[in-house]
Write a protein that binds this DNA or RNA. Structure first.
Lengths: 210, 210, 210, 210
DNA sequence: GATGAATGAGCATTCATTCAT
DNA sequence: AATGAATGAATGCTCATTCAT
């Protein structure tokens, strides 16, 4: 008890009454995120979000003036989630080939937490009608492509891949493969996914190397 | 009483006299299909469907008692659309390899009419919450898988593919590849799609043959 | 087959295709009557009437231009039903006291066919808002009152009842008693109704005689 | 901070500031009650209730999620109204005979406010199709019967009524009489009702005493 | 920050009625 | 007489948003 807690709940000790504004916002975003995964954008209700968080639905509009604002928060959160993995393994700490393989193995994690794919799919459809979301998803894809092509380029420099490798095309193919696998993750068994994933990776490596 | 031809088609040319019941139903399904592609299930309004067809929205409920019934009509239509291509080229009329390549080339057609992919994506998300749709999509996938594995098996018999080919895995990989390509068709240039498509096909053929 | 049928279906032989207009009208009235008893005026649907009769709902409007017309037919039918019993026993054929007792015993028949009471109750409530129905029900009550007061008057003449009997009041009291019993017929046991009925009749006779 | 009285009642007199939630609920129930009396359940519209109260019809659904909930409120209110009179005169404060007579005299009050009977009649018809309402009305009748039979029993003990009185049958007969009178209250003159009522009461008393 | 009450625009659905055939 | 198709006016209900407290 005497030990001072340096965690984020520090503020909670000053005002134990409730979470701070930023925390409440994050709480609402997380619940909205889950609800979108459960019911889709079609079934997302601001009232349901507020209720699950335990506040009045009018209060939600204090934190997020409009439903769109809340959705924007979810989008930001999702993009951050998708960008995170690439920050874990730095090119310096692993070989290019290992990093390519890591791309494919990430999908196995999605088997446990499929919400991410579901919400991303929902978002992809939204992007067709909402240019703002289209732009964000495009940037996300561009970032991913940059990362991958840089990875391949570095692999070429290291001699891991063949010298005449088209890194741009390679990055695109990797992305296409993973998107294809993602499209078949939900509702299917993990071994099945891994078999397909392994075969695609094998074909890719074959093409990367010679 | 005299031998005058009073067939209905004759009338149709002179005075349209309104479509038949089945025609109106098809009309409504097509408009609903387009509207889903435009606005998503989220934005599908029976009033909008009726308006675009040019009838009172109450009349729509004469043909389709509930919105779900209309959606079911759209689902049936879509499934029929997706099943049609495989009926065109029969295994007897083309080599196994050509048929595999045909699978990939079909995607280029989707560039012109992307509605099919959009509605299919919408449906895939719906399937997460609607078991009836999930079942239909699953059956569609199963049919596709059967067709492909049979194709590969026949190719093995013909000596086009290597003898120890895992036709089940092969079919799954083809499907995953195409799903991946599909996921990137909308909003992207056709040449880009073709480059990726060609590369994946090349890798696949490499694996199929030796 | 050679024997000519002189029954009402005579017409049916000429046009065996279906019932005559009057028959169809009567058919529709009977079904509407049953449906009102089942679902109330609130739940009466012209479509349901037509469907149960086995014709298209548009055809119903050929026989009864509006729903109100159909209801009017039901009202007429009900009034006729309620007026019928009094025509069976003629004053000449039975003593006044027997005829009074007959009034009470009619209720037992309603236990078997409670539709009549239900529809009458529905109609009574309708009468509050529909002057036309109010007028008809009023006339029905007036006819009943006339019949009863004439009955009592005749009983006084015959020496069956006391000379200073207020026949007008007597008729009203009989009607009130029977309406009270009617109000408790539905859903209750017949013996229970008979006990109450017998007691009220006994009290009435006591008052009629001395 | 100074000792200024800022109680809400003060404000209510100056600026009504809108009714409390419970008040608004009661307001809606009363208006619905009146509207049912005017137009019947058949003609009850949530929009009309809201409009007469002076609120948006969506607000009505804030207080009563469904129309059924509102109707339930009306039913509760009506039952409470019908149960109230018996709580006024306690057996200890009046003789048994006076209490029996009080039952009959209550009807005269209904002449001024016939809504109660109308809504009760509407409810009785609803009870035929709605078991929940049937149950409530049955309980109401049972309570009434209990009260009356206890009343008669007490009268027998006091020597006011004859010793061999069937209190159960007596209670049923009183109820039947009053239901009969009720059935004829609406649209008829009060003197007329009183004449019938007095005669029935006289016959009843005659039976109760010897 | 939070809440109860209110609002307007909209939604799928119902239903009596009409009309050309 | 009968029917399929169509229509307009409702009807109960939903939901994001607003606002005074």
């Amino acid at each position: 008890m005497s030990k001072i807690n340096i965690d984020t709940p520090q503020k909670d000790e000053i005002s134990p009454a409730g979470p701070t504004g930023a925390e409440r916002r994050q709480q609402l975003i997380l619940v909205a995120y889950q609800l979108i995964a459960e019911k889709g954008f079609e079934g997302l209700r601001t009232r349901a979000v507020a209720e699950r968080v335990g506040i009045n639905h009018a209060t939600l509009h204090y934190h997020f003036p409009t439903k769109e604002d809340l959705i924007q928060g979810v989008v930001d959160y999702l993009i951050q989630q998708f960008s995170a993995p690439h920050a874990v393994l730095h090119p310096a700490q692993a070989s290019s080939l290992e990093l390519v393989r890591a791309e494919f193995s990430q999908i196995n994690q999605l088997h446990q937490v499929p919400e991410m794919i579901i919400v991303l799919d929902e978002l992809s459809l939204r992007a067709l009608r909402d240019p703002a979301i289209a732009k964000l998803l495009n940037e996300m894809d561009k970032g991913w492509h940059s990362y991958l092509s840089e990875l391949l380029r570095s692999g070429v420099r290291q001699g891991a891949f063949r010298v005449d490798l088209d890194v741009d095309l390679g990055a695109m193919v990797i992305m296409t493969m993973i998107k294809g696998i993602r499209a078949d993750v939900i509702g299917k068994s993990q071994p099945r996914t891994e078999r397909i994933s392994a075969l695609l990776l094998a074909q890719l490596e074959c093409w990367l190397i010679d």
